[in-house]
Write a protein that binds this DNA or RNA. Structure first.
Lengths: 293, 293
DNA sequence: TCCCCTCTGTAACGAACGTTACATGATTTC
DNA sequence: GAAATCATGTAACGTTCGTTACAGAGGGGA
């Protein structure tokens, strides 16, 4: 029957043109309508799509089946996937005065592409963040009487480290969940309802990170989540979610937008009770000086 | 049948931001998710959308109703319409309508300022990087037969962590200099002329970091330095220097531009010998799979 | 600490959906 | 020109969807 190879996914359009000559008259009408208004036409209901093309519902079903799908929703899912991918690549837009030293040299192009992709990510991400949401998260951290826990995945743990160093200068009771995930249970022991967990989790969402977050919530901790636009499963039990764009069109995802979003949150926390932070920094510097000089 | 008037219809995104401050906590999660993955998230079923955000179906319905729609399919129709319009004008419009949710609200201004400051930093920084310099640094890491050492200061150690995790997937012999600086001497023991030190040091240049770098150079290691525009003292004995802008006009400096520059370097290293990297990643995944499944 | 109010999830309903079996109509073949 | 075959629509099925009523949970104010 069907060889489900996820490796090299042909687009729906390709599947249609491939089977084009085996299609009947009515099915060709459907094919033309779908390719003509691709892929939106295929995202409507069977009935709507059928009526628009002047055929019956079963014809649509047979069409979907013939071009290689198990069901109509199956085809829709694929179309949605393609659309999503297409929407997220408004990359390679030239607005920079393209500095001369970049012309010609392949590395110059890489620099340019990375700058464009990441700045685009940052702009889009922060423009879509709800200020009230940010405000709430800031207050949650700033007014938290318990501890603030930091946790990240493989690559995002760097962000947790970064957040840890900053938060430590602003308030006490900041803890980083680090090391082998098997040992995280020990950290979990102390987590309670007065605590906040700031967790970073982007795609290839890590099972151990999700498990920790879930356990923390069960112990009534509040979760602030930094994730990507597709939302980590942690979003389901997080109090505040900050989705940012991570794609750059290169091999790896970028944490730049997450970093900026984090820095914005940290700045907000600092501004929330400035005198406390200032006093703390002053105290810290006093403690540091004597032994050094 | 339907009168398609594109003229005065507010977008769904605008309707959300307009009612943003009347939304409840759960509804905000929905809003964040929808705006973060706009508009695909809203084209899913109520149940799917609800589950993804960790709320119940009725909450989704109330959300749709609150932002001004008669029904959920009603909202979907509008989203589809916007999407269709956007797809048919491929290059004319840039990504999203500038959300007005940032005006007025103090956090909105903060978000805007941070986005502007960091994107400006990134553009300026990367535009001033010499592609040839980048190329050389990439080759230095990519062709390095010895070890690559990673080191950062108080806040920049997060970047070292980030670089470590990435480089480890691309090559062997990657070491991070971490822990108490008093113990760094032990790492220094092994540093030799076949080794490369990738060091991060921005203002308030840390004495211990500088000392390590200096010692490494004395043992004939090559140094690649990420620093700010005023240059860490390490620049004096570094082979390659990448200065980036870090100012944002806020209390703390930003590492976003450094992060992007680092990601650019990492991407370059990956592209430098792609087959080796691919083989290594494949091997890594094979080693990881068995115990999990 | 208690109470009130808002927010939220559970459960049930009807409607619409995708799907299937079957009959009708069109087309081809001998 | 009759029979067989294919394409297509009709009608009914079970499922899933969007929707609503209601009860419980949670947070804020006195």
């Amino acid at each position: 029957m069907d060889a489900k190879q996820q490796a090299t996914k042909p687009t729906v359009a390709e599947q249609i043109t491939q089977k084009a000559d085996t299609l009947t008259a009515s099915e060709r009408k459907l094919a033309q309508a779908l390719l003509g208004n691709y892929p939106m036409a295929g995202l409507e209901t069977v009935a709507t799509f059928a009526e628009r093309c002047g055929v019956s519902a079963p014809t649509v079903l047979r069409f979907a089946s013939k071009i290689g799908f198990d069901s109509y929703p199956d085809m829709q899912a694929r179309l949605r996937g393609e659309l999503e991918a297409r929407l997220q690549s408004p990359l390679t837009r030239s607005s920079l005065p393209r500095s001369r030293n970049h012309s010609g040299h392949p590395m110059g192009e890489l620099l340019h592409e990375m700058a464009e992709a990441t700045t685009s990510n940052i702009r889009t991400s922060l423009a879509n963040i709800n200020p009230a949401e940010l405000q709430s998260a800031i207050e949650l951290i700033g007014d938290c009487k318990g501890s603030v826990y930091l946790l990240g995945g493989r690559f995002t743990s760097a962000l947790a480290v970064y957040a840890y160093e900053h938060l430590r200068t602003m308030r006490s009771h900041v803890r980083r969940v680090s090391g082998q995930s098997a040992k995280w249970a020990e950290d979990l022991l102390d987590v309670g309802k007065r605590d906040v967990l700031l967790v970073f989790d982007v795609r290839r969402y890590q099972a151990d990170v999700i498990a920790f977050a879930e356990a923390a919530v069960r112990q009534d901790a509040k979760i602030i989540l930094f994730t990507d636009q597709w939302l980590s499963p942690i979003a389901q039990f997080a109090r505040h979610v900050f989705p940012v764009r991570i794609e750059t069109g290169t091999t790896w995802d970028s944490s730049a937008a997450s970093m900026v979003m984090l820095e914005t949150l940290l700045e907000g926390v600092g501004q929330h009770n400035p005198e406390q932070v200032r006093a703390r920094i002053k105290h810290l510097e006093m403690l540091r000086r004597p032994p050094q000089s």
